[in-house]
């Protein structure tokens, strides 16, 4: 299996995970995860439930400390220089828990303050993004009255205000209507074209197939495949779609058995 990074662009790694191990008691959630993502790359991170995707993202965003191994963002080690690493990245979780009693404008200004974004620049970018995401007329309402999609948009705007170099997305289109989902995909592509690195975890294989430059498939806390769509197709020669490749690599036979029982 190809789990190396020969195909990465320029050798300018923005995300580096080296031998990451995370144990919860005797359970090993990550078992030597190693991967690298280059500047301007959109990287898809796939895997079945419980494979270690969220643990990996939480370690790479500084939300969780690994049991062993090293993680670097833009060359900054998360263990020794976490603030520099966090200053250049943003994280958009699948369930956007936000301060219910703040308005979207207040929340975005709050995040801008955390990232030391100059207030005038933050205000200008925020207003532009509020317009783009069609949230401007509700931006002074408390977040507690927002739908899931509006919360996602709020997190997205707050994440973009400080112009991050690395963006981590966990299930980025969950709860969004098709129009908003398309808008977000376009925004990600533009960001990548401007040199930002995007690391996205998703269950929607179509999104990964259409958007990602490279895809990593994780199972049992380990990367079992890594490469472009063409490389993955070669790896599982008889399959053509990413869904087929995914099922083949992660034990599709089990799914077939479940389908047979339910039928």
């Amino acid at each position: 299996m190809n789990t190396t990074n020969e195909a990465a662009p320029d050798g300018d790694w923005m995300i580096e995970a080296t031998d990451l191990v995370k144990r919860y008691g005797t359970f090993e959630a990550l078992n030597g995860m190693t991967l690298r993502v280059g500047r301007g790359e959109i990287f898809g991170f796939l895997g079945p439930n419980g494979a270690g995707k969220t643990t990996t993202i939480r370690i790479l965003t500084g939300l969780l400390q690994p049991t062993s191994g090293r993680a670097r963002i833009g060359g900054h080690d998360l263990a020794t220089d976490p603030l520099a690493a966090r200053a250049i990245m943003s994280f958009i979780p699948d369930t956007p828990y936000l301060y219910e009693k703040l308005t979207a404008r207040e929340y975005i200004h709050f995040v801008a303050g955390l990232y030391k974004t100059p207030p005038d620049i933050a205000a200008r970018r925020m207003e532009e993004l509020l317009e783009v995401f069609e949230l401007a007329d509700r931006a002074d309402d408390l977040i507690e009255g927002y739908s899931h999609g509006m919360r996602q948009k709020t997190v997205m705007i707050a994440a973009l205000v400080h112009d991050p170099q690395v963006l981590f997305l966990d299930e980025p289109t969950v709860g969004l209507d098709p129009r908003s989902a398309k808008l977000m995909r376009d925004v990600y592509r533009q960001l990548a074209a401007r040199g930002a690195t995007i690391f996205l975890s998703t269950h929607i294989l179509e999104i990964a197939e259409r958007m990602c430059d490279r895809i990593g498939i994780v199972q049992n806390g380990k990367l079992i495949a890594l490469g472009t769509m063409d490389e993955l197709r070669r790896l599982a020669a008889q399959n053509t779609s990413l869904e087929d490749i995914f099922l083949e690599l992660t034990g599709g036979a089990a799914f077939a058995e479940i389908a047979r029982v339910l039928a």
């Binding site: 703040l102 207040e106 200004h109 801008a112 955390l114 933050a122």
Partner: peptide, 25 residues
């Protein structure tokens, strides 16, 4: 006053922006 969240001013002028952001939040 939403923009105050990211701006040290008044009695909080001596603090850094992240500290002011959390205090005002």
């Amino acid at each position: 006053r939403a923009a105050d969240l990211g701006r040290p001013s008044g009695v909080l002028a001596w603090l850094s922006p992240p500290v002011v952001a959390v205090v005002r939040k």
